[in-house]
Design a protein around this nucleic acid. Structure first.
Lengths: 126, 126
DNA sequence: TGCATAGATGCAATGTTATGCATATAGTTG
DNA sequence: CAACTATATGCATAACATTGCATCTATGCA
């Protein structure tokens, strides 16, 4: 039962749901998630590892990049049922659609690059 | 999306899952839940109203008694899918089975009576 | 009308979670 | 091997959740 509590705990946070939603679109690395959702690097990393810990994700390391993706094959029946119910809720949702759309326009550049772009915008704003 | 977060938040607590499990067995009032799970009256009441708030339960008042039960008909498709996935996880679980078993042996007596029995046990223990 | 009882709730104390910042780690490349 | 870069993580803190206790409300019954 501990497991079930852990699973639902992971899902009971808007940011984590948003990340899960992105990954349903396609595999992502930490920096793509941070870009697409406009969140910090440490937050992105932590969320991905939380989703990984309970078994929703698998991880494929490619050099410096950590590519996370939904681990449909690795999930047991219970977890899968929950994941499917969740995915279904995302499908029609406006803001989730928008996030997925945003991901499509996102190129894979590292966090440092994202931060530089951030600085630029800040400078322009001044 | 707020709703989904709220739903998973309610489910991300062992006591609340245990209560949901009991209600899958049969409708219960606050005092039956507190007896069957050996939790306080206020806790039992709060858990039931939390499950009610997100739409898992319906409430039928019978005089002084508040009878809560799973509201299958009232749930929308998404909530129902989550409830079903959750119920499935409970089925085989040892401790959840034990709780349901315990409920079968539970008679409906009010909280004050439960408390008196509690006192008695404490006195015997001394 | 007043007392007893089931359930709900305000409040305070305690425990848990989320998150930014700084820094560590581990590949990669020159 | 040194510098660079993507990711992970320790720590501090602020926000939030849980729970017991006391008390309130509402119903039933004498």
């Amino acid at each position: 039962m501990r497991d079930l509590v852990k699973i639902y705990k992971v899902l009971s946070d808007e940011s984590r749901l948003r990340v899960l939603n992105l990954l349903l679109e396609r595999p992502c690395c930490v920096c793509e998630v941070m870009q697409a959702l406009d969140i910090s690097q440490s937050k992105s990393s932590r969320i991905l590892s939380a989703l990984y810990d309970v078994g929703f994700l698998k991880l494929h390391k490619e050099g410096l990049w950590s590519l996370y993706s939904i681990d449909w094959d690795g999930m047991d029946a219970h977890l899968k049922a929950i994941a499917e119910a969740t995915a279904l809720s995302f499908k029609e949702n406006r803001s989730m659609k928008a996030d997925r759309e945003h991901l499509r326009k996102t190129e894979r550049v590292g966090p440092s690059c994202v931060n530089k772009m951030c600085d630029k915008e800040v400078n322009i704003a001044r």
